[in-house]
Amino acid sequence: MGNLADRLMEELECRTSFTIPIFGGIPVPESCVMTWFIMAVLVIGSIIFTKRMKVVPTGFQCLVESFVLWMDNFFLEILGSKGKKYLPILETLLLYIGISNIIGLVGLRPPTKDLGVTATLAIFAILLIQFSGIREKGVKKWLHSFCEPMAFMLPINIMELVIKPLSLCMRLFGNVLGAFVIMELLKLVVPVGVPLVFSFYFDVFDGAIQAYVFVFLTSLFMSEAIEEAE
């Protein structure tokens, strides 16, 4: 039993894959390398899929087009017509989180298991939300939005600036880490066959749902930030 716990702990810690030998060595964590890998996959994928586009789509182009259209409609429905310029960034976020959650399926370690990655994503999301608020409303109205609906709500609204990203970050981190722990336990106990079935639930279903929820909440907060108070 002690052996099992030790091996689990070993799987849990964020490994350093290599060290850049300048300034006394900068450690590069594994999640960073995985992120580069996902970036490469996404970039190469989008180059391949958009290389020979036709007016009447065939084959893969149909698939990619309908997926992109689905994402467009999904975000536009939440954000309204004003949200059109934020579509690319939200869709990239969805693709990145989705792929990094699902990557556990091929035996790689998902970068979202690292608290640093999810915290970065959440901070990025809150900056995006506030930035879109400033851009759509102007600084004055944005500042005033902290005093809505009443002036005494000010501390609560400021607290929300911290709580929203914290909850986004912890939700993603907890879900991915929980799924990872269960999968590792399963792999240690029954190495053959059974993990495959559970992997479909924990990696594919749960990962996709969490990516969806993350961008869904981000766009919901954004629509709250950019809507005009009547």
């Binding site: 939700r171 907890g174 879900n175 880490l177």
Partner: peptide, 9 residues
């Protein structure tokens, strides 16, 4: 679900 996740974390 977030509450359960907080408990887990």
């Amino acid at each position: 679900e977030a509450t359960a996740i907080y408990g887990f974390v």
